[in-house]
Design a protein around this nucleic acid. Structure first.
Lengths: 213, 213, 213, 213
DNA sequence: TATGAATGAGAGTTCATTCAT
DNA sequence: GATGAATGAACTCTCATTCAT
């Protein structure tokens, strides 16, 4: 057997199974919500039979939890490194960070997960809690470091950091909820342009809207 | 018939029924989501039998729509009047408006409905569209007027209004999604204080976080 | 009170109630069948409320039975008298009898009852049996007398009377089932003309289709 | 997979399922009518669970339609061939045809379907229409050919074919309605003997009941 | 390991029947 | 008597889950 060296096609597929199922489930859960997604659809989209799905995941709920866990594998390590390496004005860093978030999370399927977790938090508090610890808290910590850096460098004025962090999270959460709920039903003309919005929002947070005295 | 003068107990109940059912449905939909709420539960909570519910609402979906309609019934009229009557600085007006939103929507069950609509938008695009027209659009228009007033009076500097409006909506949507999803699972210490957050957010939007040159 | 002499409108209506309900029920049962007819519809058509119907008939089943009983009140007395009074050829009498049946039963709502009884006989064997005794048997006896008269007068050749009677009933039953089932769905062009059919049928029964030797 | 060679027990069952369900449905629909038959009963009689039935038929109504289609699947081909091959007197052919009808339709479960279709025509006009096109019309065409053959050969006198055809259909429809409605409730003594009746009826139609001039 | 036929608890909905007014 | 709001049993249909093959 050559499995140790180069897996056969069947073996490769076998190993890929859970991943394919998770991808299919992610797409469908995001599109239709947990309750409205049928496991048979997930299986079909992953190219396997209904029974096979239950070989890998003991129940629909566990499949959901696995989807969430899988999709949010630690993304903050490299991000923190980028922050440390950044040279220059903190306003620039902030803009860069928000943009990076949009490109790496907001624009990708990962944004669907957040929407999903928030939508189904009532039904899966455990998942919401897990998400809080694994994603939200690290994210807040990262943003806090950016702000702290700004204050330390004299770029930003002193402020209540915890609260300000939420001011940065808010537009991101809003953007992704919007994208996955209201946007699909709005006439294109009215549609919110995410990057432009993010730019304006950061701009306002940096400089404010009030006329200077 | 005495119905013209004083309604009998039965008649009084009959008039109250739809409201009682709507209340029960609102509570349960917000708590468990649309799919996970059983009509029998709604009926039971309203103190009637399953069949009675269908006397007033032809289907579960129509019940849901009715809940949405009921909860958001024209709230913008008085709000616009207050805006017109307001004397003073536009920054004050903005703070006042955001506070009022929290007190009238964010703190009440109406916030649950918005969370629900956004969560179930994939399953009920029609509802999402309805919500967009009946709630979101009027809300945006109102905020736009506030900003325009500020610019006209020289309180605010000129800006892209449409985009800035979303910067005001974002914290509200965020707050209410948070309240109905993550908040219930987070340790109290970490909990976001909505009023404080809103204050900080508006403060930042008004004056920015950057050190003045 | 004048009720003994001339009843008031309300009293007249009260006495008429069961009749109005029976009429409404007859029409709806014939149109939609027993199961598909809702008692509320019957009540509405009779201009009363659902509850009132149950004041006069203890159940939907009893209503159905009453409809059948009511609609077939002895019609054979006068018919037998006509037969006795008839002068002339028995072939003429037979034609007359069949025509009279069509005009008095086939064309009227009474035909719907027969269709109904036959259709629902499986569910209401008791009703079928009642119908057999009250309608079918007297009808057969009457037709038998017509045939016997023909034989006695030398108009008809001897034959098995019981069986021949069914040959006369068959086209009537057929016609009324047809009218209440297939006819409504057939293109007008194909539609069976009842009187013409009855004429042909009696003609054939009288003279046959075989070429005479 | 061995399915190509010898189907497994499960596979054999799977193939048999629709047929078993159809048989069970036929029996129950005929016995109790469409509305009074519960799908669970049908499933139980076929030895499967409620859910299984819906694996094969998407709804109760479709099950009913399938029963109708199945029971009447092209029966007229061979019948027309027999007619073409028939040698001899047209009166004989007519007797043979009517007898064959009784043996192949009247005596079998197929008669129950016709009764059912006529009984439920009000509720399922679509089915009635389908039946008209698939069964009644071909039947009429066949009988018409028999009569035409008789006239062409000089066995029968000229006549209005369309109308005469109904004179042949009438006793068949009558017989089958009778069998499925009144017959079960009548005392055996009174019972109509179908074959005898059909014989008499055809005899009368061939030769008439009038004494020859 | 993979399948998909089979299951059956459970949900929404209907409607004959009851009964307080 | 008359009403119609209320009931709840009954019914169709769904779908996560199981298991023989």
């Amino acid at each position: 057997m050559n499995s140790a060296l180069s897996p056969t096609k069947r073996e490769r597929r076998k190993e890929a199974r859970p991943g394919e199922l998770l991808d299919a489930a992610l797409a469908l859960f995001v599109e239709k919500g947990f309750a409205a997604t049928r496991v048979e659809e997930v299986a079909a989209r992953a190219g396997v039979s209904k029974g096979t799905l239950f070989l890998y995941f003991p129940s629909k709920e566990e499949l959901f939890k696995a989807v969430v866990r899988e999709t949010i594998a630690g993304r903050f390590g490299e991000w923190n490194d980028e922050l440390d390496a950044f040279q220059g004005d903190s306003a620039e860093l902030l803009r860069y960070t928000m943009n990076a978030w949009w490109e790496r999370i907001g624009m990708t399927a990962a944004s669907g997960i957040t929407k999903l977790v928030m939508s189904e938090a009532g039904t899966f508090p455990e998942i919401a809690s897990f998400y809080q610890h694994e994603v939200i808290d690290p994210g807040r910590a990262l943003l806090k470091r950016v702000l702290q850096r700004g204050i330390d460098r004299g770029d930003f004025r002193p402020m209540d950091l915890d609260s300000a962090v939420y001011s940065l999270i808010a537009p991101m959460i809003f953007l992704l909820m919007w994208k996955h709920s209201m946007a699909p039903c709005c006439p294109p003309a009215d549609r919110l342009d995410p990057q432009a919005f993010l730019g304006t929002q950061v701009g306002l947070l940096l400089d404010g809207m009030r006329v200077r005295p």
